[in-house]
Simulated scan of single mutants.
Amino acid sequence: MSETSISVAIVDAQTPGNVGTIARTMKNFGLSDLYLVDPPSLDPDGEAYGFAGQAREDVLPNAQTVQFEYLVENFHTVGCTAVTNTDDRRHIRYPFKTPRELADSLSGIETDTLVVFGRERVGLHNEELDRLDEICSIPASASYPVLNLGQAATVVLYELRTVTLEETQHPDEIVRAPERDLEGLHDQFATFLEPIEAEPEQRTRLQRLWRRLLGRAHPTRREVSSLRGVFRRAQARLKERDD
């Protein structure tokens, strides 16, 4: 697990609900430290807490209101923006990383990193971006590249989950059925082909197709067991019909 510590800052949000949405997204992806610059009023009975889900219990009430200077003085900062420059003639919004590239670059590095999101309508100003260390931008349609604040935070923090989460509810890998079970299934399939009285070459081709199909699928033990049960029942029915 990386030693990277990732926090989130929201600059001059206008809508309390967006602050709550981002707090909830942070909770989803294993982040807890939220910094607010010029925030709206966050009423515990208002929409920020209403949108925060379980983040209303810790992330949102523990959010710190700070000045922008605090962010740049205490963190390695990453400013998020939809509008970028396409070459190196202006460095305010260039070079930039996608969220996935940002996650890869932060993995394994010991640094206190802060991901900074800006205003709903105009995002971060150039003067603010100029003081941040890196730029992150989400690839989107050229005809409409601007995501709303909550969407942008969700995409960025989702990609950073590889840095912020040690484990998720999803397994890291599929547990493939043992080869012995798979070979048993292959044998059953070969037996199942006998009643169609196909030519030996055709049966060989079908068995190869079946093996390649399962080879790509990487079935689990339960899936193999279920398929073998289907073949057994089908073969029993065929035997009853022939008798």
Rank of each mutant, 00 (worst) to 15 (best):
D45F: 13
P44R: 08
D58G: 05
P39S: 06
Q54S: 11
S41N: 12
G50M: 06
Y49A: 03
L60E: 04
G30L: 01
L42D: 00
Y49G: 02
L42F: 00
L42R: 05
G46D: 05
P44D: 08
D45S: 12
V37R: 15
D43N: 15
D58L: 11
D33E: 11
D33T: 09
Y35K: 10
E47Y: 09
D43A: 06
F29T: 00
L31Y: 12
F29C: 05
F29V: 05
G50W: 04
Y35W: 06
Y49P: 03
N28T: 07
P40M: 01
L42S: 00
G46N: 03
T25E: 11
Q54R: 13
L31R: 08
A23M: 09
A23S: 14
F51T: 12
A48Q: 04
L42I: 04
Q54V: 12
P44K: 06
A55E: 02
L60V: 05
L31N: 15
G50I: 08
D38N: 13
D38T: 14
L36T: 00
Y35D: 04
G53C: 14
V37Q: 14
I22F: 10
I22Y: 14
Q54P: 13
V37W: 10
A55M: 04
P40Y: 05
E47C: 12
T25F: 14
A55R: 01
V37H: 10
M26P: 08
L42G: 00
L34S: 06
I22Q: 13
D38G: 14
D33F: 15
R56D: 12
D58Y: 14
F29A: 03
D58I: 08
D45L: 11
D43W: 07
R24N: 09
R56C: 15
K27T: 04
